[in-house]
């Protein structure tokens, strides 16, 4: 178990170093950092001075070491457009993105599992067919179109929900939350659905397929032969065995949800990291782009690592093979 954890940890660090190289290359080679920081009439001498203070004359490997060192302490330099430390900008916006991503994931899990279980157990009912149709639409409609459609329905036509922003937020330490006010909660509804819909269809398809697969297994047949109630078979045995892979996938998808939030945040002008990133791409604000890449990668790698470890805890078979492997 320890060897397994260690191996996974080394892999995770490897990926982070690779991402660090990409982020550093972006920062260093994609355009000249100095020219981004000065105005056109800055003299050559002044440019040289800035170049020196940034250490851009040092050997590349030294610069890379410095970049990684800083990144490890969450220092990503100064934004070209905001003239503020990138870290501050990201931290300010992180609660908005995380709250949105968590709400979207909960929405996706709850409805995805319910719809998936229903369409697996009642395969030929009209409701199951409706769910299948919804899943096809959820996969085919681009996220931003769904957002626009929801805004048109619930903001423009019905006027029930706000079309942009987080509503009123409450500050708790450095964290800001929209979960404690009515307007904050209302503002969360449409962005969460927009962001979660794709995951929901994914989870629904997965639950349905897994459940149908599990229902065909010998141990379900044996459970029936033991005279267990339908309820115990469906929800005790079949669902539990279905949920192991489903939770893994949903967990692994959480990183994607954060990345996909870029689109949702733009549609709803949600003040999160994604919106910051989109603006950075438009304005060629490389330090923010590089920092965002590092942050999202870190989240990805952490989740992958945690899910791998959790998986072995949930599934007893893996636990012993893993501990036997070393």
């Amino acid at each position: 178990m320890l060897a397994f954890t260690l191996r996974r940890a080394i892999q995770a660090v490897g990926v982070m170093v690779a991402v660090g190289i990409i982020a550093f290359s972006m920062f260093r080679f994609a355009g000249d950092p100095v020219s981004q920081m000065v105005s056109i009439d800055t003299s050559g001498a002044e440019r040289e001075a800035i170049r020196k203070t940034l250490g851009l004359d040092d050997p590349v490997i030294v610069q890379f070491g410095r970049y990684i060192n800083n990144a490890a302490r969450f220092r990503f330099g100064t934004s070209y457009q905001f003239r503020q430390p990138v870290t501050n900008l990201l931290m300010e916006r992180m609660p908005a993105t995380l709250e949105l991503a968590i709400c979207a994931t909960i929405f996706a899990m709850v409805f995805g599992i319910l719809m998936g279980v229903y369409s697996a157990l009642r395969r030929d009912t009209w409701l199951a067919h409706l769910f299948q149709a919804i899943s096809l639409i959820g996969i085919s409609l681009p996220t931003f179109l769904i957002g626009i459609l929801l805004i048109y329905l619930f903001s423009v036509t019905l006027g029930w929900l706000p079309s942009f922003g987080r509503g009123e937020v409450v500050r708790i330490g450095w964290w800001t939350t929209g979960l404690l006010t009515l307007s904050g909660l209302k503002a969360l509804i449409m962005p969460s659905i927009t962001l979660g819909l794709f995951q929901m269809t994914l989870i629904m398809r997965l639950v349905r397929a897994e459940m149908l697969e599990v229902m065909r297994t010998d141990y379900i047949r044996f459970a029936r032969a033991r005279g267990l109630t339908t309820r115990a078979i469906h929800f005790g045995h079949a669902l539990r065995n279905t949920l192991v892979p489903v939770i893994t996938v949903a967990g692994l998808q959480f990183g994607s949800v954060i990345a996909f939030a870029i689109i949702t945040e733009t549609v709803f002008q949600w003040p999160g990291m994604g919106l910051l990133f989109v603006q950075a791409v438009q304005n060629v604000d490389i330090p923010i782009m590089a920092a965002y890449l590092m942050m999202v990668s870190l989240i990805f790698v952490t989740i992958n690592f945690v899910v791998d470890i959790l998986y072995t805890i949930v599934d007893p078979r893996l636990r012993s093979t893993v501990s036997r492997a070393h």
Partner: peptide
């Protein structure tokens, strides 16, 4: 379409 929608 998404990139274009995002302005990029």
């Amino acid at each position: 379409a998404t990139l274009s929608f995002l302005g990029s």
